[in-house]
């Protein structure tokens, strides 16, 4: 599904180059559930933005579904995001003046889906996340967990192949967070490729695979069950600059 080869991304911060991603090589199989962990500033979000075609790498090759997307222009990337990638953010990013249903309809508006079909599909997605009765409520009338479920419905309404979630439970209480994670797991079980950036070991544990980033390098690769090793690595600071071997490399 996804193949990253030697991806580099450097930002210029006040004249100082900041290397957010350094030679990141990674493969994500279709239907996989990958968790990305790392301390603040380690490059997790940058990696997520590159994967979501919101940001372009300075060097390296990014293949999505066998297609090199590194050289696509802005419009082509927009179309790719529209039909292939869904986003869920920590702060939900719902449009406050729109109802839950209208928020879910938003991606379909830009995709040119007719109004009746839009409404039907939005309602089906809201039903799938248990929010059909709240369809006409605005975000300020919904709880945090409900807002994130609306965001989930919106992210998946155009049936993307890849869902990118940036701290999806970061602003939620325990019960709401678990509810959202269950929905994510269910979607993943239905074949959706899921990449989650998180600080929360409980979230990362659910992933089939786990990578840890530090200073733009991948410093740990393992399964979800190896979360304790990852947490220990993060708490001790070990492995700094000592990248774990990339897949397919000696």
């Amino acid at each position: 599904m996804i193949r990253l080869v030697d991806i580099c991304r450097t930002y210029d911060l006040g004249g100082n180059p900041v290397r957010a991603l350094v030679d990141v090589t990674e493969e994500i199989a279709s239907g996989e559930h990958l968790a990305i962990m790392g301390p603040s500033g380690s490059g997790k979000s940058t990696l997520l933005h590159v994967l979501g075609c919101l940001d372009r790498p300075d060097a390296g090759r990014y293949e999505l579904d066998g297609r090199d997307v590194s050289a696509l222009d802005d419009d082509a990337l927009s179309l790719l995001r529209r039909h292939t990638i869904g986003f869920v953010f920590q702060s939900f990013h719902l449009v406050p003046r729109l109802t839950a249903r209208e928020n879910v309809e938003l991606p379909m508006v830009f995709a040119g889906v007719p109004a009746a079909e839009r409404r039907e599909r939005a309602m089906a997605k809201l039903r799938a996340v248990g929010l059909e009765p709240r369809a006409s409520h605005r975000p300020d009338q919904l709880s945090g967990g409900e807002r994130q479920r609306v965001a989930l419905a919106r992210a998946t309404v155009l049936e993307p192949k890849l869902l990118l979630a940036d701290e999806p439970t970061g602003n939620l209480d325990g019960a709401s967070g678990r509810h959202v994670l269950e929905i994510l797991s269910r979607m993943n079980a239905d074949g959706l490729t899921l990449v989650v950036v998180t600080h929360d070991p409980a979230v990362a544990r659910r992933a089939r695979r786990l990578i840890v980033l530090r200073d733009g390098h991948v410093v740990f690769r393992g399964s979800g069950e190896q979360i304790h090793e990852a947490v220990e690595l993060l708490s001790t600071g070990d492995g700094e600059g000592d990248a774990a071997p990339a897949p397919g490399r000696p």
Binding site: D75, S78, R81, H83, H93, F110
Partner: peptide
């Protein structure tokens, strides 16, 4: 601004 970011994330082109 944040809403504009969201529109771009869900696939709106710059022209849209």
């Amino acid at each position: 601004t944040s809403e504009i970011g969201l529109l771009r994330a869900v696939g709106a082109t710059a022209a849209q």
